[in-house]
Design a protein around this nucleic acid. Structure first.
Length: 116
RNA sequence: UCAGGGUGAGCGGGCAAUUACUCUUUCUAAGUUUAGGCUUAAAAGGGGAGGAAAGUCCGGACUUCACUAAAAAUGGUAGUGGGUAACGCCCACCGGGCCGUUUCGGUUAAAGUCGUGCGGUCAAGGGACAGUGCCACAGAGACAAUACUAAUCCUGGAUUUUAUAACAGGAAAAAAGGUGAAAAGAAGCUGGGUGUUUCGCAAGGAGCUACCGGUUUCGCUCCUCAGCAAUGAGGAUAGCGUGGUAAACCCUACCAGAAGCAAGAGCAAACUUUCUUUUAACUCUCGGGUUAUGAGAAAUGACAAGUGGCUCGCAUGAGCUUAUUAGUAAUAAUAAGCCUAGAUAAAUGAUUGCCUAGAACAGAAUCCGGCUUAUAGCUGCUCUGAUAAC
RNA sequence: GGAGAGGUCGCAUAGUGGUCGAUUGCGCUCGCUUGGAAAGCGGGUAAGGUGAAAGCCUUCGAGGGUUCAAAUCCCUCUCUCUCCG
C-alpha cells in the first residue's frame, strides 16, 4: 500500500489523465501520465470486472503492480500523475513479466531521473 | 487395520526475522484557542477478512416518505404440534416416493413377486360434491359425456299370399370391438378350463390365453380403541365409491404500506459544462505569415444544469466463551468472564529460514437470522466391503 | 453496494402447455429469367447424432420438479446486458 500522498483520489484526476496524458500501451497494461502542480508523484490503478470476476484475482494484480511502483519510487522524477489500466491479457502472466512491462513503460515515458 | 460412500459437528497452514499499509492507546514537539480542546509530525505498545465474506433467494433491525383502523386490490405461504424478533428457516411427529437388506410371513421347483420389519435418502404435503376453464391426436364419447362397428327390435323397401336381401329411417342397449395417459374401481398370486404355439415316434411335457372361481392388498361405508392433532390399529358389510389438472383461474386460513445506507442527517461552499473577457506558449494545414480549427492553462462575473468534498450514520450486538437448569430436540432461562476489522480508487503485501509440500474455494463495505452454491487436506460420527485375531 | 431485463439456426427475431426438430427475414445453395450479372420469381438448406432413405434417439443456456404431455409453468445455478449518487 502506498502512502496517502502518493494516491490519486479524485475522479477528475482520472479524467484529466485520460484526456491530456501521454500514453504507453503494451498488451497487458497501459499507462497514462500527466503533469500535476504538487511536485509529487501520484498513482492510480484501474482494473475492472472484465479482467476477472473474482475479487481475489483483481486484488492480487493490484498488489503486484503496487509493489513494482514501490520498488521504482526513488528513481522516478517528481511532478506527475500516473494511471495504470489493466487488460485481460494479464491473466496467466507472472510478476516478472508484469514488472518488465511496467518498467518498459516508465522508460518510454521518460519518467526516470537523469543519471548525472 | 485397509479401501470406498454419506454427514458437515470441529479446523481451514503454523512459528520466527526485516520492512510497507490501516485503525487505535500513551507520551513528546510545533501551531491555534481565554480554557476545554482541535490540527500536524515523530516515537513506543496493541488490534487488523470468511465458513462461505459469494449468489441476492427469503426474513428482520434501522432510515426517509406515505398513512385513522378495517376492507378491497395485488403478492406470498400451505400435513400436525412446537421454536424464534421474524421467516418460505429449524426441531419433533404423521403420511408418501425411491434405494438397500438372509427380519419374518404368503406364494413358487426356482428365479421372481406381494406384504411386513430395519437402515438410508428425497420432497412447495390444504381444497377437484363452491364455481369456471382445459384434457391435443385418436376415439361414439373427456364428465351426469356418447351410439361408429357388430348384434337385437319396429317401420319403409314390400306386392294376391308366404318367406325375405341390399338399402333408408327410428327405438332400446354400455355385455363386446376399437381409441387413449385416463372411459362408474385398481393390482398380485393361484385352482379349474377353452383355444393355440412348441418339443417328442408316442404317452406326454413346456409357454401364452378366452371364460368361471378362490385368496391377499389398496380405495369406498360403518363401529370400537389409541393419539392434543396429522393419523394409525382392529372388526363388520357390500362387490362397488362418477376421472385428471389448483407449480390453470379460483376457494379457505394466515402474513405483508412503499423504497432502500448510492437510505438519511449536518457542515462547508468547491469543481465541470455553457456564456463573457484576457494572455503567452504548443499541435495540424503552410516555404513563412495572416486567418481558421482543435486541445490546454489562468483570471473575473452570472446564474441554470450537472458532478463532487468533509463529518455523522458505523461497530456493545436478537454479541461471544464456559458452567448449571428446563426440554426427546430446535431452543430458552440464570450466573461468571470477555470486547473481537471498520477501509473510502478502498488496508493483510514483499523478501527469507524451518516444519511437511511454490497448499482448496475464495476478499468485509450498514448490521443480524437462515437458505443455496464453491471447497484441497485433517479430525469426529455413521454405513458398506475385505483381511487378521478372539 | 443496491435494483431490474434477457439467453431459440451463422446473424436478428416469432412461438396461448398438445398437430414443434420449432415461424419469419437476412444469409447459403439449386433452377427459371438475362448476351452476362444485379434485381425479381420458384424450390431446397440452415437448430444435434446415426442412416442411402424412411425412421430412431437426443434437443430451445445448465440441472431438478409439477403434468398423460414442458421452449412455454415452478425452483436452483450459470452467462450477457441495463439502470441507481
Amino acid at each position: 500500500m502506498l502512502k496517502q500522498e502518493n494516491r490519486i483520489g479524485l475522479n477528475k484526476d482520472f479524467d484529466r489523465a485520460f484526456k491530456a496524458g501521454q500514453s504507453f500501451y503494451s498488451k497487458i497494461v497501459g499507462i497514462k501520465a500527466v503533469i500535476n502542480q504538487d511536485n509529487k508523484n501520484r498513482f492510480g490503478i484501474l482494473i475492472n470486472t472484465k479482467v476477472s470476476k473474482k475479487a481475489v484475482i483483481r486484488n492480487r494484480i493490484r498488489r503486484q503492480i503496487r509493489e513494482i511502483i514501490k520498488q521504482n519510487l526513488d528513481k522516478i522524477e517528481l511532478g506527475r500523475n500516473y494511471v495504470f489500466i489493466v487488460f485481460p491479457e494479464i491473466l496467466g502472466k507472472n510478476s516478472l513479466e508484469i514488472k518488465e512491462n511496467v518498467e518498459n513503460g516508465f522508460k518510454k515515458l521518460k519518467a526516470y531521473k537523469k543519471i548525472k
